[in-house]
């Protein structure tokens, strides 16, 4: 496996003390994940599409305890704020085991413009299964996927409405790939979220599991299913009746639980309550 590492003392210190600022990350503040300094792991980062308007960072965090590799992507759509804010938080999670690769702001141009689409259209429609991704940015992201060879991929999004309630909305849904493990874990994570995270007084905001991602659409998670035959998930929260901080928190909870089930355990965070 090819890996470019830039682990230095300076880099480690920056990760420990300054990554949140570098990432523009939101504050966790709710005890989701333990303080950075408690865990001994190594961090590195590199930039894809360097020197272009699309330049974006890939963060790699490796626990001292071996384990699977997870890749988390946010910001495929620039107007889905909670996705890239949550991914920015995930990028600085210390780990108990495994390796976490995060591309928190995949589509920098779209994020800057607060638009769904970036310079070359909808980034999450540029990953046809069995073919080369159709734009340079999509190819760079897919190259990162291939480089790190993840055991699981999470793609963080949000939607204006709630799936099956509002027209053309997919919020409050986990979409697993058609890998059998993913569907099972999605069921368990949804049960956990509905039990421990979503208040009982918001029954329409209960999460549900969407149909399996099979590779039949040109989306990143579909390509993970179609080309890699690995577990992957799209996590969708909703903007409807949810403040931004709560969306980010719920997205993080979903991500942490799924990661833990796949053996990439964020320190201080457990999949189960």
């Amino acid at each position: 496996m090819q890996r470019r590492r830039f682990l230095t003392v300076v880099g480690g210190a920056a990760a420990a003390f300054g990554t949140a600022e570098l990432l523009g990350a939101s504050q966790s503040g709710d005890g989701d994940v333990a303080a950075d300094s408690a865990v001994d792991d190594e961090t590195s980062s590199y930039t894809v599409r360097s020197g272009t308007r699309q330049a974006t960072e890939v963060f790699v965090r490796k626990s001292t305890r071996d384990g699977p590799t997870a890749l988390v992507v946010g910001g495929m759509h620039g107007d889905e704020t909670s996705g890239y804010r949550a991914a920015s938080d995930v990028a600085r999670w210390p780990l108990e085991s495994g390796t976490l690769v995060a591309i928190p702001r995949a589509n920098r141009v779209a994020i800057r413009n607060d638009r769904r689409e970036g310079a070359r259209g909808d980034l999450n429609r540029q990953f046809p299964t069995g073919e080369r991704p159709t734009t340079a940015l999509a190819r760079a992201i897919w190259s990162a996927v291939q480089r790190h060879d993840p055991d699981v991929v999470l793609d963080l999004h949000s939607s204006v409405g709630i799936y099956r309630l509002h027209e053309d909305s997919v919020g409050q849904t986990l979409w697993p790939t058609d890998d059998g493990t993913a569907a099972t874990y999605a069921d368990r994570t949804v049960a956990y979220l509905n039990d421990a995270v979503v208040p009982w007084s918001m029954p329409y905001h209960d999460f549900r599991v969407g149909g399996a991602l099979t590779g039949d659409r040109p989306m990143l998670a579909h390509k993970v299913a179609g080309d890699l035959d690995r577990p992957g998930y799209i996590i969708e929260t909703t903007d409807f009746l949810l403040d931004g901080a709560t969306q980010v928190r719920w997205t993080r909870k979903a991500a942490a639980d799924l990661l833990a089930r796949h053996g990439v355990v964020p320190a201080g965070e457990r999949g189960e309550r």
């Binding site: 208040p199 007084s201 918001m202 009746l241 403040d243 709560t246």
Partner: peptide, 11 residues
């Protein structure tokens, strides 16, 4: 209040 902050979403 609940929409401003979901932690204030009471029965």
């Amino acid at each position: 209040a609940g929409a401003v902050d979901a932690r204030l979403m009471t029965p």
